[in-house]
Design a binder for these strands. Structure first.
Length: 489
RNA sequence: CGGGGCGUAGCGCAGCCCGGUAGCGCACCACGUUCGGGACGUGGGGGCCGCAGGUUCAAAUCCUGUCGCCCCGACCA
């Protein structure tokens, strides 16, 4: 047993990196802070994209693509927005290289008249474009999504969770009324919740961001927060109600039915490859990655076992027929008939890669018309009849999906606490961490004090219909409702 | 950008204190025996010891600088 993965109890950050490495998802690139996504990781992203894209289309959205480069002046049009992104921009200043005695240098004469910012997000360039697309209420709503890469010059990076360049989707919608834009904002956070819970098997809490944590330029930011295995929270997706901020900044108006010229209302929303990080930290264990069946690039791997050529033929015939049958039933199956790796090696390999279900077939099984199926999530094996096997596999995959979600849900529940005093809050945050519901007076001042003293932040203000009022655990001032605190990634 | 640690084969590391021209495990290649949980034996390939200077007859080792990575802060999807 030559396992490289170390225990997450010893060093969670290292464990996380080891899981990624062993599963061959991604690695650091030679470019500071950037990531190479390997085929295993990209296949996962493609599956996530496919599901999300389908959900976007179903909710009436279309895809489009806007430029990578944003004229510097665009970024300064919305005051809060500039403030939020100014400190983390990559800026293109020149357009040419020339040979010199010191090697290749930037040609000073190629300096751009106006610098270009590599998009940290696309609100500005999109709103500058929407200005030309919108004249009448008949042009609304605009419901567009873009799959893209963005760049944010981060100080410290972590694979998937925070890299200088990352892949994401960003939706940008324009509406005639505030109500429609708000409805869109809420609809899309619900889409993200569905995706996180039903596909990633990652339970999330929906809420609203505090003013401090809100997206720069938004009136309100809704988010989904998920609790990771180390007790820290991950912001997994956001949906912003932008009000008329960008419409005003870019002068996007339309003439309404009543003849009046009005500014349009906006939303934007996004999720990124960070979701992959969230999935790893939600499900993986000390044996490596565990992928939810609905997103796993390979749902089932068949490992044939044989000793000699005669057995090889019988086993491969048997396994090949099984592969064909599963494929026909729409299961993503792979038959690994490579002869230069031994079965034991393959078992271990597919475990670190997180393949949800493994089927082993050997001469014994051929003879008895049986199969050994092994679940990655529970590490349990069972011998089943090779009859109606596709249905059995399908059911097992569904069960894995459910079990994974339930396990994560229970863990989140077990690590969600309600506290009334700041002393209890500090004790819990330092010991178990996790989600904590507590009363807060609603001021940024108190929020920052808590952050400063405990490293915990308000992850979100829950959207319950019937909040329970109380008094702020720090200041004793009145509080409308409990809010969700945690340390965060 | 502040504080700490580390750069030696694809990966993980030893050697450095006390200079003498590079080694271990895994991986890789060949052959044979193996094959129902990461096989074993024998043989083999692979290194500008992060980079640049300096000291020295001689530098992975000592000195200076520099770049990069990791962890902890500030910042953030």
């Amino acid at each position: 047993m030559a396992k490289n993965i170390i225990s997450k109890d010893k060093d969670y950050a290292q464990w996380y990196l080891d899981v990624i490495k062993e599963a061959k998802l991604a690695e650091h690139s030679p470019v500071r802070g950037c990531m190479v996504i390997r085929p295993n990781g990209y296949a996962l992203w493609e599956n996530m994209q496919a599901v999300l894209d389908g959900m976007f289309k179903e909710t009436g959205h279309q895809n489009a693509y806007f430029p990578l480069f944003i004229p510097k002046s665009f970024l300064s049009k919305e005051a809060q927005h500039v403030k939020g992104f100014a400190k983390e921009c990559a800026i293109v200043t020149h357009s040419r290289l020339i040979d010199s005695d010191d090697g290749v240098i930037v040609d000073p004469s190629s300096k751009l008249e106006e610098e270009l910012v590599v998009r940290p997000t696309s609100e500005t360039i999109i709103w500058d474009t929407y200005k030309n697309w919108i004249q009448s209420y008949r042009d609304l709503p605009i419901l567009i999504n873009q799959w893209a890469n963005v760049v944010r010059w981060e100080m410290r990076t972590r694979l998937f969770l925070r890299t200088m360049e990352f892949l994401w989707q960003e939706g940008h919608t324009a509406h005639a009324t505030a109500g429609e834009a708000l409805e869109e904002t809420e609809k899309m956070i619900e889409v993200y919740r569905t995706f996180a819970e039903d596909y990633m098997a990652m339970p999330v809490t929906i809420g609203k961001k505090s003013e401090e944590e809100r997206f720069p330029g938004a009136i309100d930011t809704l988010c989904i927060e998920a609790l990771m295995q180390d007790g820290k929270s991950l912001q997994a997706g956001t949906s912003h109600f932008l009000g008329q901020n960008f419409a005003k900044a870019f002068d996007v108006t339309f003439q309404d039915k009543d003849g009046e010229v009005k500014h349009v209302w906006a939303s934007s929303w996004g999720v990124s490859t960070r979701l992959i990080g969230g999935m790893i930290m939600t499900h993986a264990d000390d044996d490596g990655l565990i992928l939810p069946p609905k997103l796993a690039p390979t749902q089932v791997v068949i490992v044939p076992i044989w000793k000699n050529d005669e057995q090889l033929k019988a086993v491969l015939d048997y396994a090949g027929a099984l592969e064909k049958e599963l494929k026909e039933k729409g299961i993503r199956v792979k038959l690994d008939d490579r002869d230069f790796y031994k079965p034991g090696w393959k078992f271990a390999q597919y475990e670190v890669e997180g393949v949800p279900l493994r089927i082993a077939v050997g001469p014994r099984d051929v003879e008895n018309n049986k199969l050994e199926i092994a679940r990655r999530d529970t590490k349990t094996k069972s011998l089943v009849d090779n009859e109606n096997v596709a249905q059995v596999i399908k059911d097992t995959l569904d069960e894995i999906q459910t079990t994974m979600f339930e396990k994560a849900r229970k863990r989140t529940e077990d690590n969600t606490r309600t506290v009334n005093t700041y002393d209890d809050f500090k004790k819990i945050i330092n010991k178990e961490s996790g989600f904590i519901y507590a009363h807060w007076d609603g001021t940024t001042e108190t929020e920052l004090k808590i952050k400063d003293e405990t490293k915990a932040t308000i992850r979100c203000i829950p959207l319950d219909e019937n909040p329970e009022p109380g008094t702020c655990m720090v200041t004793g001032k009145p509080s409308e409702r409990r809010v969700l605190f945690a340390r965060a990634y």
